[in-house]
Amino acid sequence: MSTGLPLWEVFIRGRRGLSHQHVGSVHASDAEMALRNARDLYTRRGEGVSIWVVPAASVCASSPDEKEPFFDPAGDKVYRHPTFYRVPDGVKNL
C-alpha cells in the first residue's frame, strides 16, 4: 500500500493590497514542504506574493445544516450596506 502525504489547504495573496484567497490544496509531509510545493504549483506564472498553508484537518468549517442560522441573520441587516441610506440629491462625496 502506498504512503499518502498529508493534505494542506493553500491560500495565496495575489498582490499587495489583496487578502489571501483559497486556491486549492497540496500534499506534503510538513509545513515547510507544503509551502514549497504550493509555491511551485500555484505560482508558476507569478500569481502570488505570499502563501499560507494550513493542514486540511485543522480547518473548522460551518456545516451546511447551519447555513440558515449562520448566514441568514445577516441577510436582513440591510443597514449594514451603504445603499440602505437615503441621500438627498446633489450631496456628493458621501
Binding site: S2, T3, P6, S29, D30, A31, E32, P55, A57, S58
Partner: peptide, 26 residues
C-alpha cells in the same frame, strides 16, 4: 515511479514526525 518513490515519502513523513513542531498534528 510511485514504488520507487515510496522510501522518499516515508522518509519525509518520518522527518515530519520527528520534528512535529513543524509537521502536522493530525
Amino acid at each position: 515511479a510511485h514504488e520507487d518513490g515510496e522510501w522518499v515519502r516515508e522518509a519525509a513523513l518520518a522527518y515530519a514526525a520527528k520534528h512535529s513542531d513543524k509537521g502536522v498534528a493530525a
